[in-house]
Simulated assay, not measured.
Amino acid sequence: MHIVLVEPEIPGNTGNISRLCAAEHLTLHLVEPLGFSIDDKHLKRAGLDYWDLLEVHVHPDFSSVERMLKGHHFYYNTTKAVKAYTQVSFREDDVLVFGKETKGLPEDMLLAHREDCIRIPMIEEARSLNLSNAVAIVALEALRQTGFPHLLKESGRLFKGGRDTHEYV
């Protein structure tokens, strides 16, 4: 599964998301311009010692992501969507796209992919959730639906399972 951050601005958020991606075996894609340097100490601090576990790609623009992940299903996360993230049947190779902290995803991108826009339900008065929290919520639901592929459980054995059944192998 892939996490795409389009023009992220806050190094701490991207660091937290990097740590999530490393721990959950998700590939991270960062779309420039970034609001920080990849070498930023806040970014590294939030990711702690997980950087060697992370697969990360930096792209000059979103079309670079589309070319690299052609054939994958993209979901665009936005507060403007009608469909909740829980109404989607995720697959292991899906792409979860998130926008910058201050503006979200560009309006033209949302309009072009209206059927694939999803949201986290929240009260009307709340503008949005923190980016790293939103990524964690949606990514972990997607992983839950796909049976947490590639992950270890406390016994050290690989964990496999589907939507309703789970077993150790």
Score class of each variant (00 low, 15 high):
149 P>N: 05
1 M>L: 11
116 D>P: 00
158 L>Q: 12
97 V>L: 06
153 K>L: 10
76 Y>A: 03
85 Y>M: 05
98 F>W: 04
41 K>F: 11
51 W>T: 02
66 E>G: 02
161 G>A: 07
60 P>M: 01
90 F>T: 03
2 H>L: 02
45 R>F: 07
80 K>N: 12
71 G>C: 09
108 D>S: 13
165 T>F: 13
126 A>V: 15
149 P>G: 07
54 L>F: 10
84 A>D: 15
29 H>S: 11
41 K>P: 15
62 F>Y: 15
8 P>W: 03
133 N>G: 06
44 K>Q: 12
54 L>E: 07
85 Y>T: 04
140 L>H: 14
23 A>G: 15
33 P>E: 10
1 M>V: 09
120 I>G: 04
132 S>E: 04
78 T>E: 07
154 E>F: 02
63 S>F: 07
15 G>E: 02
157 R>S: 13
30 L>P: 01
6 V>W: 06
109 M>N: 00
9 E>A: 11
18 S>K: 04
20 L>W: 00
76 Y>G: 01
60 P>L: 07
21 C>Y: 01
107 E>V: 12
124 E>L: 09
7 E>L: 01
82 V>E: 15
168 Y>S: 12
55 E>N: 14
144 R>I: 08
137 I>Y: 01
43 L>R: 00
146 T>V: 13
115 E>F: 05
132 S>P: 05
